[in-house]
Computed example of a mutant assay.
Amino acid sequence: MTTSGFCVDEFGGVRTELANQLASGEELGAAVCVTVDGETVVDLWGGHRDPERTVPWTEDTLVNVFSISKTMTALCALLLVDRGELDVRQRVAHYWPEFAANGKGDIEIRHILGHTSGVSGWERPIELADIYDTEAASARLATQSPWWTPGTASGYHALNYGHLVGEVIRRITGRGLGQFFAEELAGPLDADFHIGTGPEHHHRIAPLVPPPRLHFDMASLDQTSILVKTLTSPLLDLPEANSAAWRRAEIGAVNGHGNARSVARIQSLVSCGGALGGRRLLSEKTIDLIFEQQSDGPDLALLVPLRFGLGYGLPQPQTAPAVPGGRVCWWAGLGGAIVVNDLDHRITFAYTMNKMAPGLIGSPRADAYLRAVYTAVRAGARA
């Protein structure tokens, strides 16, 4: 199957890989983008938006990228750090006094940015629709006790990351996360990415196609475990992620909508050391904060080895074998979307798709594209 867009000759292997994945049916619709020094060298898309393969994936197709959204939320916080309005070592309650309730008074900003706060989900009962009311859902988090000793381990803040970080942003700026992101990042960088996607964009969104259901009985697990409480409080209903209500909500952990081009555009701010297009938005000192390791070991919510810095995962060969080592930060969305920022090579790689792969982190398809990118990088280094 042919792909659309462009690709410089050195990265031709990426085009070949995408064409092969589309032709095999492993992909339904997808986009891949690579920037070097902030300049686009790969911007490819292909396939279809719908399972019936009647609507082509086009240049401006959007898709829910799930947890890539967390990297956008983290960048919003880092902008405030850079402006001196937010201190990652300050207590969350300094900005959000109600958060100090029930033993959370010593939790620091770095703990919520790095998934070590002990508040990785909501206390039951809670339904998915309840978290669409961002302020009310955030207020519920403020009343809770931590589920483990803050700062001692990561427990992936799967659905509530944007509520925690976003409420701090709202307390500082008076703006909700979606508005702040649009005005301070997406707008200035001319990036077609949205946290809280208005109905005027819904016709461009490719519906997600869930992976085959795993025959796994969650009820057989310890219902008080951090894994069960995090992943079921509330339970993510994948068909609901195609609803208009989900798309409009501001869920900064999981419902950002964009495409590979817009993800790469915004995130190349990181791979380029905080400056893009001749404009510096983040200092090198602030970029360095991303790489301050907050945890390294089995994540209490996902039960896989993870290394977290501030707002991003750091290279972890066991969990993400295709993500290279070095001064690299990354994260993946449920179903396989991924972004990788490589500051050693000043490269950002982004991949988005609508046919979801099974598993919580990454996918064989994402790995294949990433390996094709680094085959080209290594060949260029030898030349």
Rank of each mutant, 00 (worst) to 15 (best):
M218C: 09
A219G: 15
A219R: 14
L221P: 01
D222V: 05
Q223V: 07
Q223N: 11
Q223W: 10
Q223S: 12
Q223P: 07
S225Q: 06
S225H: 07
I226M: 11
I226S: 12
L227G: 11
V228D: 11
K229E: 15
T230L: 13
T230M: 10
T230K: 13
L231F: 13
T232V: 02
T232S: 14
T232A: 01
T232N: 10
S233R: 00
L236V: 10
L238Q: 04
L238I: 14
L238Y: 00
L238P: 00
P239W: 01
E240C: 12
E240A: 15
E240S: 10
E240W: 13
E240Y: 14
E240H: 13
E240I: 15
A241E: 12
A241S: 15
N242W: 06
S243G: 03
S243P: 02
A244Y: 08
A244E: 13
A245I: 10
A245W: 12
A245G: 14
A245E: 15
W246N: 12
W246Y: 13
W246V: 12
R247T: 02
R248D: 15
R248A: 15
R248W: 13
R248M: 11
A249Q: 04
E250G: 10
E250Y: 09
I251Y: 01
I251M: 12
I251R: 00
A253R: 00
A253K: 01
N255Y: 07
G256S: 02
G256I: 02
H257Y: 08
H257N: 14
H257R: 15
G258V: 04
G258P: 03
R261F: 07
S262F: 06
A264F: 01
R265T: 12
R265W: 01
Q267S: 11
L269I: 04
L269R: 03
V270D: 04
V270E: 02
S271G: 01
S271A: 09
S271Y: 02
C272L: 06
C272A: 09
G273A: 01
G274V: 10
G274M: 07
G274S: 10
L276C: 05
G277K: 00
G277Q: 01
G277V: 02
R279K: 11
R279D: 12
R279Y: 04
R280I: 13
L281E: 02
L281R: 14
L282C: 08
L282K: 09
L282Q: 08
L282D: 07
L282H: 09
T286Y: 05
T286S: 07
T286C: 08
I287C: 04
L289P: 03
L289I: 11
I290Y: 02
I290G: 03
F291Q: 05
E292W: 09
Q293G: 06
Q294G: 15
Q294L: 07
D296C: 11
D296S: 11
D296I: 12
D296G: 08
G297Q: 05
G297S: 07
G297W: 07
D299S: 06
D299V: 10
L300T: 06
